[in-house]
């Protein structure tokens, strides 16, 4: 338990979180390893966990019939994925696959949600960090969809 708490405390996403809050989160947490090619989650299945990437890389991808897998974004250590476990209908809408062996800290959704609701201070601290991540990722997505290295950037969005 203490090791887990330490891992959580050192994860960039939770940096600066109060000890009592880390303790609350640790109660929902587990450490999980994935091999190269393993799926962290599959589209359409129940979104029941949030993932804090400790090491390794994970890609978010989606399958298009006739084309195959399209990689949307690869995530690096320090990134967080699995926001869908916080909101109904609690279902994944992309696949997450390990590109290389990965160590992940998992927070169980049905454990996490009541704790965030019950303790607004914790709820806000986590939400604010999430919002910052969403902001960062949104910026990346904006830049990505501009298709900047195309001959006429932004003109043809495939």
């Amino acid at each position: 338990m203490e090791v887990l708490e330490q891992l959580l405390a050192n994860h960039p996403f939770l940096l600066g979180l109060k000890a009592k809050h880390l303790n609350l989160l640790a109660g929902c947490a587990a450490r999980q390893e994935y091999g190269r090619g393993d799926f962290l989650f599959r589209e359409g299945t129940e979104a029941d966990q949030m993932f804090l990437l400790h090491s390794g890389r994970v890609t978010l991808e989606i399958h298009q019939p006739g084309i195959g897998e399209i990689q949307l974004e690869s995530l690096l250590p320090g990134d967080v994925l699995g926001w869908s476990c916080l909101f109904p209908p609690y279902r994944w809408h992309v696949d997450a696959r390990a590109l290389e062996p990965a160590v992940v800290l998992i927070l169980a959704g049905d454990c996490l949600r009541p704790k965030l609701d019950a303790d607004p201070e914790l709820g806000y601290a986590v939400t604010k960090r999430l919002l910052n991540k969403v902001h960062e990722r949104l910026e990346h997505v904006r830049m990505q969809r501009l298709d900047l290295y195309n001959v006429r950037p932004g003109e043809r969005i495939p």
């Binding site: 195959g68 399209i70 990689q71 590109l99």
Partner: peptide, 14 residues
């Protein structure tokens, strides 16, 4: 890279 298929093991994103 901005976009890739499953056969790319590098980074995807900006």
């Amino acid at each position: 890279v901005d976009r890739a298929g499953a056969d790319w093991f590098g980074h995807v994103g900006v």
